[in-house]
């Protein structure tokens, strides 16, 4: 465990807290992509299947449960709970996620570490996580202007990815046997997706002003 990894996980948790606060306190899921949240739920449920047979640390196992619980709670609230479910707009949030899930499933079957069922599922979850933010980014793009909490949410997720990238660089230089091609490739793609958002986030937040983020 290094500081980048730890801060990455913390900012991942922060993103859940921001989103849960937004939809429970604000009573609205406007601007939040249920599609992205469903993808995250699939990602965590498939990747953390190994909760049943792997134990790396209490920290890891605890966070796995937290991630599954938070993403499921978010999906449940937006899909089934009033008044939040009435604020979700299926016409705006209509990214065809089958075109993300399908290719990721095929990639998981073909490109994985050692051809065991769990390695295939695990690789699938890594690929799917890389693109899971796309429906959210497309939704923001359509709306043009992004509410503050929503922009903080995406920024926290982006920070989590950036910190994980630094964690990999750090581990590569400090550990002898550390090589993870699949994770590095998918993680770099994933972090790249946030670059445009961060540019606009920085533009609207600099100077201490708390203006909403505007996207072209």
């Amino acid at each position: 465990m290094n500081i980048f990894r730890f801060l990455g996980d913390m900012s991942h948790i922060l993103s859940f807290v921001i989103l849960l606060l937004k939809i429970t306190q604000g009573k609205s899921a406007a601007g939040i992509s249920l599609r992205t949240q469903e993808l995250y739920m699939i990602v965590f449920c498939s990747r953390y299947l190994d909760l049943f047979w792997n134990f790396s640390s209490l920290y890891n196992s605890f966070l796995k449960v937290v991630f599954i619980a938070c993403s499921s709670a978010i999906v449940y609230i937006i899909r089934f709970k009033s008044p939040q479910k009435d604020t979700w707009n299926p016409e705006l949030d209509n990214f065809p996620i089958q075109y993300l899930i399908g290719p990721c499933a095929v990639a998981g079957l073909l490109i994985n570490q050692d051809w065991t069922p769990f390695e295939m599922i695990w690789a699938f979850s890594i690929y799917l996580e890389a693109v899971a933010i796309l429906p959210q980014l497309f939704l923001l793009q359509k709306q043009g202007e992004v509410e503050n909490l929503t922009s903080h949410y995406v920024a926290a997720l982006g920070a989590y990815r950036g910190l994980y990238l630094m964690n990999w660089v750090y581990r590569y230089f400090t550990e002898d046997d550390y090589l993870q091609r699949i994770v590095w490739f998918a993680g770099t793609v994933q972090t790249g997706l946030y670059i445009d958002f961060f540019y606009h986030y920085y533009q609207s937040k600099r100077g201490g002003l708390s203006r909403p983020v505007k996207l072209p």
């Binding site: 990894r5 996980d9 991942h12 190994d50 792997n54 790396s56 640390s57 890891n60 966070l63 796995k64 991630f67 570490q113 050692d114 695990w122 994980y164 964690n167 046997d177 550390y178 090589l179 993870q180 091609r181 994770v183």
Partner: peptide, 10 residues
Amino acid sequence: LREMVEKDEL
């Protein structure tokens, strides 16, 4: 270098 099999990241 060996490809890492143990999953110690989240």
